[in-house]
Design a binder for these strands. Sequence first.
DNA 1: TTGTAGGCGTTATCAT
DNA 2: ATGATAACGCCTACAA
Lengths: 360, 360
Amino acid sequence: MTGMDDGSQTLSSSPTLHDVAREAGVSIATASRALNGSARNVRSENATRVRAAAAKLGYEPHLSAQAIAKGSTRTVALVVRDVADPYFSSIAAGVGQAAESAQLIVTMAVADGSPERELEIVKTLRGQRPRVIIVAGSRVEGAGTRDALVDELQEYRTAGGRVVMISQRDLPFSTVAIDNHGGAERLARALLGLGYRRFAVFHAPAEIRTSSDRHAGFVAALRSAGVPEPLAIETGFTRAGGYGAARRLVEQGIEGVEAVFAVNDVMAIGAMTAFRDAGVVPGVDIGVAGFDDIGSAVDVVPALTSVAVPLQEAGLAAMRLALSDDTGDVRLPADVVLRESTPRRAPAGKRQARRPRPGA
Amino acid sequence: MTGMDDGSQTLSSSPTLHDVAREAGVSIATASRALNGSARNVRSENATRVRAAAAKLGYEPHLSAQAIAKGSTRTVALVVRDVADPYFSSIAAGVGQAAESAQLIVTMAVADGSPERELEIVKTLRGQRPRVIIVAGSRVEGAGTRDALVDELQEYRTAGGRVVMISQRDLPFSTVAIDNHGGAERLARALLGLGYRRFAVFHAPAEIRTSSDRHAGFVAALRSAGVPEPLAIETGFTRAGGYGAARRLVEQGIEGVEAVFAVNDVMAIGAMTAFRDAGVVPGVDIGVAGFDDIGSAVDVVPALTSVAVPLQEAGLAAMRLALSDDTGDVRLPADVVLRESTPRRAPAGKRQARRPRPGA
DNA sequence: TTGTAGGCGTTATCAT
DNA sequence: ATGATAACGCCTACAA
């Protein structure tokens, strides 16, 4: 199929439309029309010859050339904080799926937690002239780079691009908002309903809006219920962060706390392992709840109480928003899912009797 | 910063080098040199003015235009089967990291298990004229699309592109190979050493090389040890697949099997949950082992015995291979990690006494 | 040091 | 229906 080289091709370079046209014995314009033809205005005999020539030569149109000739690309740019995190990879999966059915190519950049890096990425991405830029999990709170980011994105938009933020409300762009505050409130109320009163919260640094929103929602619900302020422990927004926070909590004495709320599931899962390693049994000695309801929440023991966020749907919604021309926001629900990691607490009287474990 | 529009820009279009040059009062060539300068041959005063103009206008060079002018891009294309799978997202993280330090942009496509789709993706990708194409977790065994894929990739390579396969030996391209066969053999031997003799294997359809290699390695080691042929159960290469296989196994009677080997961790973890749901306690009633050693292997209870594969390193290695001009393959180790999901089996005499669980 | 002009691979306009 | 030819945005000899 690749054989029978007639020496017409430049060494080490892809065949061009020119080559195809020559091979088919037609003009370059006809070749273009036959391959990509906006209309049916090519004699079918010629069309066939052109297609045959293209196949023989292994021709693929140069997307960059098309982009500059047509003045637009078929690209969507996605920036995430960390691909390896299930939160973002689920979003990415959604975006990818929507992009596929819209015949769009997705280019993906990893911001890795640095706002400077994020800004630089958006600049580079702008050079791609994508149809859409989707920013997921930005950490722009307070940072001086925030305004620069907004500027950059705004210029991109005035140049005709669409920008959609995921889970980053209050920036002047279309956003797919996740009900972080409300979800955390409902979680708090659910835990109160199960009999928990004294909490610790494992949260990330305040610049991460997702974290601070969830934290705030949780605390708000607690306050309006009149229970004691929860103990707040700041740590990384990762599994390791959750593990470390749990360790610290155990070291500084865990007596006062009945349950911990980690602002996302990977943290909660790391925390559960840390507790277990320290001889504190999650779901028995301490309640644990997370947020996101990632897949592995049900595979962990005890199964993790969480707040379900339709992550993949968020990616799909972002693309839908970008492709449609209405500029409204989308708000995604966040529903509490109670599981074994937060069993109903026995009433105070009986609690003492059940607490001590054989080995302790 | 964006204000003070002097009306010079075309509506709904990014500023071009032309605009910058005009704004700075120099020729377009000088502007190009000042911004992207191959040499230091621009009067510093002019250089400053050009940069100022670029900043004022929010200019970003059109990457497609640069690509076509220079004849090369700064893009690496990555194709994976499923981003949401930790196996692939870890690889993607490695690729992304290496790409960042090489100042390369990564575009990512999801093949979603269909060989046809994979082929089509590679074609489209070729149109991007990326410097590198990395294919991870291809399923080309036996399929007729295999030759077409190879053809496509080969044409890309003769056009000057670099192609690297991850975990797909025996295709005529540079490969980052994971020692699937050897790792599975060592796992089998380790389990034999722990006293297990009767196994079930949960594996994916044979076209998935990763699965069949692991399966084959496991069986080979068993055979040369003279233990009974394991029960093979075919299922999906996903968590759901593992869950389903475990269910089926329980239904058809689990008595004969002492341990199951699932060809990857997500399957193993799904299987553990299914066993638990059916009242069969993993690590007590049945041993469970996986492959990959994904992060959550240690967060699950009992912690999962697995074979550690340096996934992120695989992504890095692939980029290294692509960027260097030596064409050799890289072989990554796969080391057994024994954990609580496969405890040492008590000798036959005592086994009976320990087996029955209180509740059973 | 700077500007002019030609070219990169396509598409699109305009004659033919 | 087809073929010149002028863009598209940028880079880079070559000339000044």
